[in-house]
Design a protein around this nucleic acid. Sequence first.
DNA 1: ATCGGTTGACCGATCCA
DNA 2: TGGATCGGTCAACCGAT
Length: 304
Amino acid sequence: MASGAGGGTAATERLIRSAQKSTNQLKALLAGGGGGGGRSSGAVEVILADISDSLSQALASLMLRAACDDQSLPAAAAPPPPPEASLLPSYGQCVVANSGGRSVSKRKAQRRSRADGSSRRIILELGDRDDSYLWRKYGQKDILGARFARSYYRCAQMLGCTARKQVQQSDDDPSRLEITYIGLHTCGGDRPSSPVPTNPADGPRCDAATSSHRLLPSALQQKLEEHVPAASDDMMMACTPSWLFIPSPACSQSELLSEGEVPELRVVRQEPYDPVELVEEHKKPSDADEDSLALHDSVVPDFM
DNA sequence: ATCGGTTGACCGATCCA
DNA sequence: TGGATCGGTCAACCGAT
């Protein structure tokens, strides 16, 4: 929480200006006829990534600020999460109310601190994407009000690792999976990028025949690492060209989060990132085209 | 034989009358 | 306050490799 609302506003403005700048670059590039062939195409991709990055961050910042305003939950009022327990330390100090879709009962939300001490939670709503850890499924449960059952996984990379995750198909968009991470990885890394080689050429760490392990693309990892620290200075928002963090609507923090907890984060896939080889096993064939369309639509957020 | 997913049962937290 | 409800977990079972 390095900056308050004012800092967030300034940062948002910077991000939008950055997007504008990149847009102009793109215009110039396209006006030039794209004669550069592959080189030009690469440049376009880079610029698009920049634009999307900036816009996503700006949007996230705006969304969070709006949420905070609505909730009258001063971010500074919440106790800071333990640094070692935070993937995104300052995130979600403001939490919006349940925003429709599947109803999230108070009971459900309050249970989150039950399992172990590290009740902090990150919700990744990333469709068919997976992280780099090895998970073993240990249960599945029909959830009241949810169309799809929730699956429960625990980290199987090392015996005794306390990390777990819950995977549930989105009611709103069945092609998307909502992944909730609970607890810390005691198997050597606190976040998915840690145990993963940053070079995709290194290949998967695990047996390719096992569906549970996939790599987080190195580019995405780098982006995460770049943006996560920045996010705490920036209204606690972060995103990458492919991911947008928004506060989870699942709970009201003041009511549901005990001291030391880190509120939920929701990551919504916003635009193209296509590590096809990494996600193929979860990819539903019928979703491929749909995804692609949606991605293009979301390159420029609506608020622009 | 081993590994991992499925599924029914159970436990405990929370809700509500 | 106690029964009802529900989410989370356990563990036996089964299929795939």
